[in-house]
Design a protein around this nucleic acid. Sequence first.
DNA 1: GCATTTCATTGACACGGTGAAGGAACAGGC
DNA 2: GCCTGTTCCTTCACCGTGTCAATGAAATGC
Lengths: 378, 378
Amino acid sequence: MRALLLAGPLSRAELARRLERSPASITKTTQPLLAAGLVAEDAGRIAEEPAVPGESRGRPGVPLVLLAGRHLFIGVKVTSNEVFAVRTDAAGVVQASGHRDLADVEQETVVAQILELVNELREPGEIQALGVGLAGRMSRFDDTVRHNPFLGWDEVPLAGILERATGIPTVLSEDARALTAGVQWSGPGRGMSDLAVLTVGVGVGLGIVIEDRVLAGPSGRVGRIGHMRVADSGPVCERGHRGCASAFLTTAAITQGIGVPRGRADLDLDAALALADDGDAVALRVFADAGRALGVLIAQLANTLGLPAVILAGDGLGMLAHARPSLDAALADHLDPHATRPTVVTFSSGFDEWARGAAVVACQWMLVDPPPYRTDLA
Amino acid sequence: MRALLLAGPLSRAELARRLERSPASITKTTQPLLAAGLVAEDAGRIAEEPAVPGESRGRPGVPLVLLAGRHLFIGVKVTSNEVFAVRTDAAGVVQASGHRDLADVEQETVVAQILELVNELREPGEIQALGVGLAGRMSRFDDTVRHNPFLGWDEVPLAGILERATGIPTVLSEDARALTAGVQWSGPGRGMSDLAVLTVGVGVGLGIVIEDRVLAGPSGRVGRIGHMRVADSGPVCERGHRGCASAFLTTAAITQGIGVPRGRADLDLDAALALADDGDAVALRVFADAGRALGVLIAQLANTLGLPAVILAGDGLGMLAHARPSLDAALADHLDPHATRPTVVTFSSGFDEWARGAAVVACQWMLVDPPPYRTDLA
DNA sequence: GCATTTCATTGACACGGTGAAGGAACAGGC
DNA sequence: GCCTGTTCCTTCACCGTGTCAATGAAATGC
């Protein structure tokens, strides 16, 4: 119920229509929330503006707003060499953030750094839940790291470890899915019920939202699209596939694709972009190829799932400055004749956004699936 | 509730575990169903066999079975030149079937033929619902044919027309999705909660089931995979894409791919298969390419959605006799290193199976979303 | 026979939903 | 200003569906 309040300040009548419930039901369910201070009537009447002017007959509704500040969440994103953490409110607004470098990927090291960050961020009030985003196989709302190639972990019961150390209910989530949840809950995809989030960076990641649900798949394996074939020819990825997505889109593929012919093996992404800015032919070609690969991927997603919107994110997104034309061309070319063209939104986001996604997952976890042990504490 | 009874005869306790409800709840909800004769206690104790022998302690459960015969459904599949219809019970078992040729695709002609078939099949008892499967864009449980390229229809309120003429509640469904529903409900995918159905024939179709739900997409556009790129090179499809799925897999692509070099423009699929049986090099190559295309498609699906099972269906399935080795090789090659290999099941089905799927959709529609006007009649 | 185990039923009860009825707040016409 | 129409919100009685706790029933194994 509270979940849909996040679609903005809404009057009770509007809520009833959106949730397909009777007005009586809304009144009843919101009363305890009002008393508990979780929602409030908005005296400002913000939401009345977009109403059609001619329809101003009748008693105006009293908008309800979620007092998001009442509930705090912490989200953590773990990469192979860094840990990022943010504290957010229930609306997913970041209040504070922090980060630590990782000396190694030992369990003790990582857990210690996470705990430091959590203790740093938790001080202003009670934290409702802690969400941790990591790469690798995990179900939605998991408690164990099944397999993480970057950390070299297998079957680590991280949620339990953190819960015991912090006293905060903790949930794990696959990172691309956490980012997707963040995007859909309170990011550029807010209010959309169907979208995909395509991330480009060290790898190629994918999160899918269908009918307001973030897909997890039977064993948390949704979104392995790194080896989708996107072109007739082109570079070969590390598994020997010619023309697969990883071979065009990962940061390593791009820096090597430009650096090797230009004799600069240590080229980084910024330098590659600078080369392209200066009109370097190799760089422009590599970026154009990357754009084409992205366009094909987006078209394939739109064809397969009929998605109306695709959101691009990740630290490799800078390429779009040079890749956008070929992306658009490839998208138009590969789209099914009867499919509607999906809206492509770019979302430049740092690692904070991944951590924020983990916090959003924690928030959703509390809303849909309050952990039983919380009642023990109450 | 009844929906999960279709997962086989189950004891009440087993039902409670599967539905995550309390045993008390199961007893209460099944009592009126028992009284109404919709379910029955199965004296034969069929389902007790697969239990682990060592766990035979305690009072054995009384299996409940759905008396499927109490509810009848009719499913109709409309192609550009034929209409197929079947009568099934609630379990999706076909009791009778029929078919008509279509002289043309005028609305009156098609409706008249459907009505003839329905009246032929409806006589033994009350029909609960009528499901119609057609190609084209439609939402799940739609009532209007939005756009059907084969019939040349746009915005035809077919459900209303048939409802008025027959007095049976009617629902429309996109045909690949109907087939998928049939496969998952009572076909080879019975009991699986995640699977894809890939159809090969005049076109290439796809239906997806995730978490027990048949995906429809925001506007019924799931599953347009005809133009997915599956190879570096190869024939060109009618839209000019080199190496796309349609160019390898449709019946037309195969018959032309073999018929043109062999100078037999009128070659049909059976003749093409016969050529391959005789060791014709061109035919063997075309079928091997088709298998490779299928393997890549399956791998891409498995990677994108993490599906554990893919079911192949459609009238073009005969190719597998010669295409299976290349299919398996391509599947292994393109699967993500960390993905589990999906089970690939072949399901040889005629058009009756498509009609049966439409009947299953009608059954599901009644179970999850009983149409309000039925109460008017009662 | 008895303990053990699992299944199934019952009754008291809570929660979330509905429909009907009625009061409250606004706009507009007279 | 007052009535009317409209929409919003609340209250009340009620129902359906679920739970918990207690009890009985049917099997196995010692």
